[in-house]
């Protein structure tokens, strides 16, 4: 069973549709900590404000996600779902992230390299410097395009699986063992995005 966590942060239908399109069966959209613990895979989608992730703490999902991932359950955070894997975000400083990865997410700078930088970062941008051992990007070529829409981003670290350049490089995807996240929207990134989701489903 694949648990897609519903924490009222934007629409889940596209993620569920993409997973079904790829042949995934038994997808459960849930807010239940027990279901997360029973799931063979967990997906945390999300668009919108970081403060929406407060509901994960309120519903006691944080603890079950910690347990499930410690037991080796593959976990994929998407967009705000990736950001939540970090310690937090300046978007909602009072809301704690999972803290699985060190560092906090920050807003894009208003200026970069002497020029104005538009924010939000919206559109198709390239994924680069794909880590050779990345499971998410198996079969995905460096320089492939994926769709983004966000204003906060995670910094590059040793856990970064690929980067995207916008106001400098940021973390396009993070991956350590069974815990992974993508800042872009794989469910809206045509063939490249579907390949990333397929890779996750095949774990």
């Amino acid at each position: 069973m694949i648990a897609v966590i519903d924490y009222k942060a934007g629409n889940l239908t596209s993620v569920v549709k993409a997973l079904k399109h790829l042949g995934a069966e038994n997808i459960v959209v849930t807010q239940s900590p027990e279901e997360v613990l029973r799931a063979s895979k967990v997906v945390l989608p999300g668009v919108g404000h970081f403060r929406a992730t407060q509901l994960l703490h309120d519903l006691k999902l944080t603890q079950s996600i910690r347990e499930a991932t410690a037991n080796g359950t593959p976990f994929l955070g998407i967009c705000v779902g990736l950001q939540w894997l970090y310690e937090g975000s300046t978007e909602a400083p009072e809301t704690e992230g999972l803290g699985h990865f060190a560092a906090r997410c920050e807003h894009f700078p208003a200026r970069y390299n002497g020029g104005e930088l538009k924010s939000p970062h919206v559109g198709w941008n390239s994924i680069e410097k794909i880590r050779p051992d990345s499971k998410l990007f198996a079969g995905v070529a460096d320089g492939s395009f994926v769709y983004y829409t966000h204003s906060w981003r995670a910094p590059v670290s040793a856990d970064t699986a690929a980067t995207t350049p916008y106001g400098g490089d940021f973390t396009a995807a993070v991956e350590r063992g069974n815990v992974m996240g993508v800042q872009f929207h794989p469910e809206k990134s045509a063939e490249t995005g579907l390949q990333v989701l397929r890779n996750f489903l095949e774990l």
């Binding site: 239908t13 596209s14 549709k17 769709y147 829409t149």
Partner: peptide
């Protein structure tokens, strides 16, 4: 239209 559309 949305059923199998994997672009925005």
């Amino acid at each position: 239209t949305a059923e199998k559309l994997f672009v925005p």
